[in-house]
Amino acid sequence: MTNMIEILTSDYGVHLAILVSLYLILAQSLNLTVGLGQLFNLAHVASYAVGAYATALLSTEHSASFTVCVAVSISLCAAFATLLGAISLRLTTDYFAIGTLAFSAVVSALLINWKSVTHGVLGIPGIPRPELLGIDFYDNGNFLALIGIFAVITQAILYCLYNSPCGRSLRALAEFERAAASLGKNTRRTRNIAFCVSSAFAGLAGSFFSYYLNYIDPSSFGLGEMVFILTIVIVGSPGSFGGVIGATLFLVLLPEPLRFLDISSTYLGPMRQLLHALILFGVVWWKRDKLFPQRRTV
């Protein structure tokens, strides 16, 4: 017991809490599109990258303040989603997934090849921690408080959105689009809003990711990361608010005990991925009827 408390209050515990907060923002916002809207959105990690790079570039090259960086990251991601939504939301089901995956690949390629801006694979080092109200955010405890507040606000906003008229419309059109339209719901607009809000929160998470690691490179925003966030949503049951919170805690913390086993780090990384893959496979198999319901048409 005392060991547990020691771990939780140590730097390692704080690091884990920061990771949990970060993934809470990322996964719950993805839940809005994948869970509530049943839109198989694979561009979430691209929004995350856009947010991270916006903050990294603004704070290193223009010494922009925390407020400006976060505001720009969020707005840029919302704008990015509006553009992407205008194109990909015309597609449905699997085609939408392929469309968003393609967009993700484009962003990934840009991050690697647009060297004059993104510094390519070398990434952007030296991202300063936020400066706010004279608090030292180089102290991880303080940084945890900051990201924790934002994570709680995100959960609160998304909880209200899930239960708001917009969230209800989104769930309705995911279940039976024509019936939703015949109830006066503008299906395209509702999907666009969901896509925009989801992307904006991914941008916020990206911004915090940059601030926390002080260094970013394209490898953090690959397909593997997307699959991990998607795993959280699927394990937590798509559309379930509490389920995604539980799954975030479970999946972020689950591989941690592996660190304490006497295993070389060469095997540790692949073992974690294998564990996630097994969990994902198990959940998809177990809940296959619920995850892939038949869409209703007239």
Binding site: A179, A181, S182
Partner: peptide, 22 residues
């Protein structure tokens, strides 16, 4: 369709247009 619905056109579907999961 949604604009027609907003103008007072109500539709009841043959294969149940209710949202069963709600």
């Amino acid at each position: 369709p949604y604009l027609r619905a907003q103008r007072g056109l109500g539709r009841v579907f043959q294969n149940f247009g209710i949202f069963r999961e709600m």
